[in-house]
């Protein structure tokens, strides 16, 4: 496998929630056009770290981030950076499918509309269709685009949310346990999709399932109690972990 250049670099990132030290000194490089998985026991800080990459933590009052995170060499915590502009470049898919209470079409069109990606209705239609196709849900919903997105099944909702995130043409896609609320069939649909997505995007996925990380990712980082214990090729981590804690986790002794 070819090693892509680093898309995201972090250096000495620390996160505090009030008095809690949630992330301790994390440094890693995430390559472009790759799926990178964050694994670790619940409460280890992997989701928190993920939310730092598109500054979603800004919406929480008590959260404080220090250290450097760069995307394409630009510090995203620079004072000149507008988080709104950043989040267009760094899309996000959440743990629980959260379609807006609008039609399927409007759900996908929302992002392009606010970012002004379409000049007219025809262009918007095109963007929506493309996003739904990439989200591998077009065939299921093409005849009912005006129905509410909340009426879809769980797996469909999550793929709709992925399509929604893709529609703004991000370069990076963050996924926070995207399959934890889904049944096995829906999970496998979404996993296939994620595997496809790496051709166009850098995907960072947080998951509590090691099998999932093994199935979809090329790189894996293991988090434990707020620190990043180990980071490397997924095959390496699962077959030959260097750290004892990683081994314990993978063999099911902790977590």
């Amino acid at each position: 496998m070819t090693q892509n250049r680093a898309k995201i670099r972090t250096e000495g990132v620390n996160v505090h929630y009030g008095a809690t030290h949630a992330i301790k000194d994390v440094t890693l490089d995430i390559p472009d056009k790759t799926v990178t998985a964050f694994i670790g026991p619940s409460g280890c800080g992997k989701s928190t770290f993920l939310r730092c990459i598109n500054r979603m933590n800004d919406t929480i009052d008590v959260c404080r981030v220090t250290g450097i995170i760069t995307i394409d060499g630009e510090d995203i915590y620079d004072r000149r950076i507008d988080p709104v502009q950043l989040r267009r470049k760094v899309g996000m898919v959440f743990q629980k499918p959260n379609p807006f209470p609008k039609s399927i079409y409007d759900n996908v069109a929302y992002g392009p509309k606010i970012h002004g990606l379409a000049r007219n209705r025809a262009e918007l239609d095109e963007i929506v269709e493309k996003a739904l196709r990439r989200g591998a849900i077009w065939d299921e919903v093409k005849d009912r685009l005006s129905e509410p997105g909340t009426g879809l099944s769980g797996g469909q909702q999550q793929r709709l949310c992925i399509a929604r995130a893709i529609a703004t043409e991000p370069e990076i896609l963050l996924m926070d346990e995207p399959c934890s609320a889904l049944d096995p069939i829906a999970t496998s649909q979404v996993e296939e999709l994620i595997y496809e997505l790496k051709n166009n995007y850098s995907v960072v996925i947080v998951t509590h399932s090691m099998q999932q990380a093994a199935r979809v990712s090329q790189k894996t980082a293991f988090f434990h109690l707020g620190t990043m214990v180990e980071y490397g090729e997924t095959d390496e981590i699962f077959t030959n972990p260097r750290d004892e804690r990683t081994e314990n986790y993978i063999t099911g002794r902790i977590g």
Partner: peptide, 10 residues
């Protein structure tokens, strides 16, 4: 829902 919207950059 708010997170979803912020995540899209609104």
């Amino acid at each position: 829902l708010r997170d979803g919207s912020y995540g899209l950059g609104s």
